[in-house]
Design a protein around this nucleic acid. Structure first.
Length: 396
DNA sequence: TCTGGGGTCCTAGGACCC
DNA sequence: TCTGGGGTCCTAGGACCC
């Protein structure tokens, strides 16, 4: 989806169309703007002057999405709000409203699966679709179906998206970036040299800042330069699995299927404080936040019908260093008190000498609530090992 | 000008078992 | 008295993605 969060906000506030705006403020600020709704009017009637501006913004936070006009100023996702304010002080700031984005996310995904049922969910604003078995899916290299999906999404939601069509997920993902917003691009295997090799390695899904830096150190800037190295050399420098993957990827090869279903592995809640908190000085405040996080995770688990048995915490110190601790308990749980208790024990094992800026609570090793695994009596180490041994004995 | 929240997967060492 | 090979689970950290 194109500038997804921002585009959803523009549906509510069409008066902001064409103006630089960023999503990432706090809830309190939207309330200020909402107070200016003229009597008998709607959100669309709020005068542009009433919206909060970046230059007046104080506090922590990053930009999740910037409108295209805001991007002209060099503002982009993950940029700190204070930095963005320097680049474009007159940009409007709007708070994130995840519930609303999820609502639109469900809408556009429903439209897609109605047209092409084999869809992989890649988060709130992105999917992979398998065109292989869809009628007309191969017409004009997929362009006909892609346009049809685009049009259907726009007609029911008013949102635009960009679609890349290619022989595999790797190339399709890159193709989707070629023509934004509202574009369709088709990439064939034969386009590899001309359209993929000139791209910087960073464009590949899976090459992040660290891998890119290392590649640069080794004199590799583009995917073509990566393709020119031999496999053995890549494996020497990046290890067996990453090296082999890099080689395949540089040659446009990717055989991952489009996965339509998956089970969650973990659920978590975390929060960055308005100001750094100290474990001793702000004990009560931290305690309250901690308990609330545990309650939220428990709610999430219960609502979605999962239980887990690895409870963990995450801290971010004022120097931005992260520490995690976790503990696996005997029984699967989705109970706030149990989570709070176990997470509390984790907290005792982590250094609390520095001020904290973030606290998080995580529950992992999830299984479906009520499933056979969830009900199973906790096996002792010995019993598990015995079962494993019996298996070996029966095999040989 | 300090940098969100929610995830997944991988690595690596150690405990423990046969 | 010092020693193999295979496996699972747990824990901590880190890279990466949307």
């Amino acid at each position: 989806m194109d500038a997804f969060y921002a585009s959803v906000e523009l549906l509510r506030y069409p008066q902001l169309k064409g103006l630089p705006a960023v999503i990432g403020g706090s809830r309190r600020r939207e309330d200020e703007a909402l107070r200016h709704v003229p009597a008998g009017g709607t959100l669309a009637d709020i005068p542009v002057e009433a919206f909060p501006l970046l230059k007046d913004y104080v506090g922590r936070g990053v930009i999740t999405t910037a409108t295209y006009p805001a991007r002209q100023f060099g503002i982009g996702s993950a940029m700190g709000l204070m930095k963005a304010a320097k680049l474009c002080p007159q940009a409007i700031v709007l708070p994130v409203d995840f519930d609303e984005y999820r609502r639109f996310s469900r809408m556009f995904k429903k439209i897609i699966t109605d047209a092409a049922p084999v869809m992989e969910d890649r988060g709130v604003d992105e999917v992979y679709i398998d065109f292989t078995e869809v009628p007309d899916g191969q017409l004009e290299g997929g362009r006909v179906l892609a346009r049809r999906i685009q049009r259907a999404i726009f007609e029911t939601t008013g949102l635009t998206c960009s679609i890349g069509v290619a022989p595999n997920k790797l190339l399709a993902k890159m193709a989707s970036e070629f023509d934004k917003p509202n574009g369709v691009s088709i990439v064939y295997e034969s386009d590899l040299q001309e359209r993929i090799w000139p791209l910087p390695c960073r464009k590949v899904n899976g090459i992040g800042p660290k891998a890119d830096e290392k590649l640069q150190r080794l004199g590799i800037r583009t995917i073509g330069e990566l393709a020119a190295r031999d496999r053995a050399w890549l494996i020497e420098n990046f290890g067996k699995s990453t090296g082999a993957w890099m080689h395949e990827m540089a040659w446009g090869r990717d055989d991952r299927p489009v996965v339509t279903e998956s089970e969650p592995v973990s659920m978590s809640r975390e929060t960055t404080f308005d100001r750094d908190l100290h474990a001793v000085r702000n004990r009560a405040e931290l305690g309250e936040i901690f308990t609330r996080l545990c309650e939220k995770v428990a709610e999430d688990l219960q609502r979605k019908g999962y239980v887990g048995k690895t409870i963990g915490i995450k801290l971010r110190y004022d120097d931005f260093k992260i520490a995690t601790r976790d503990q696996t308990i005997e029984q699967f749980t989705a109970d706030a008190k149990t989570i709070r208790q176990t997470a509390g024990r984790c907290l005792k094992r982590v250094p609390l000498d520095r001020p904290l800026r973030l606290l998080g609570v995580r529950v992992g090793a999830l299984v479906k609530a009520g499933s056979a695994e969830a009900r199973m009596a906790p096996a002792s180490r010995g019993a598990r090992a015995e079962a494993a041994g019996a298996m070996t004995a029966s095999l040989f």
